[in-house]
Amino acid sequence: MKYHKLTENAVKPDGFWGKLMIRSMNKGHSELTDWALTHFPIRSGSVVLDVGCGGGKTVGKLCDMVGSGKVYGIDYSGLCVKKAENLNRKNVLCNRAVIRQASVSSLPFEDEKFDAVTAVETYYFWPDKLGDLREIGRVLKRGGRLLLVFEMLADPDDPEKWKAVEKRLNIEAVTREGIEEMLDRAGYQNIRTYVRSGTTWLCATAEKE
């Protein structure tokens, strides 16, 4: 029962179990994010958006990378926004980080604002994946880059691996080919995917024309 309450709060953390899930995500996704960012160098001075920022751990990592730049985080969970602001309070106070409550389907930013956009372990939950990728493309500058990060890569040798999580959260594990196709349909170019050996970790990078 406790495990079910925790996993159910992966979608939109709220209340006591949501707080535990945020803490778990910040810890559990950290190494995955570090690995993915090795494939996604960010120049100092960049303006970056983290979509589905959760508890804000990735926002902090990005702040360390952008130097004099700025990092925005959005999440549609009000609890996540509060936790992310608290974790990044120094950067928020210095106006190096801004956390807002919003949906990936309707980003509250003007066209071509960002040099880069990241999304760690959130793609599964997007309501309109193709439309949401295009919405991200709207706020990316020309030549801007997108990083998608996944822990749940479908494993043909173990097709039941993610079934319990998929059923409980009404999501699907991704495939390398499926992500590449979706990014291509959304109009991105220079699409690259990487899988960490011995894991089901996947990250994809792409650019806006």
Rank of each mutant, 00 (worst) to 15 (best):
V120M: 07
V120H: 11
E121N: 13
E121S: 13
Y123H: 06
Y123M: 02
Y124N: 01
F125E: 15
F125V: 09
F125K: 11
F125G: 14
W126Y: 10
P127S: 11
P127E: 14
D128A: 05
D128M: 04
L130Q: 15
L130E: 15
G131T: 14
G131Q: 13
D132L: 02
L133D: 04
L133S: 02
R134Y: 11
R134H: 11
E135D: 04
I136Y: 00
G137Y: 00
R138Y: 11
R138E: 15
R138Q: 13
V139T: 05
V139M: 00
L140G: 01
L140M: 03
K141G: 09
K141C: 10
K141D: 13
R142K: 07
G143F: 10
G143D: 15
G144V: 05
G144A: 07
L146G: 06
L146Q: 10
L146T: 12
L147C: 06
L148F: 11
L148P: 07
V149L: 09
V149K: 05
V149M: 05
V149D: 04
V149S: 09
F150L: 11
E151C: 03
E151S: 08
E151L: 13
M152Y: 09
M152R: 06
L153P: 04
D155Y: 11
P156A: 08
D157E: 15
D157L: 03
D157G: 12
D158G: 14
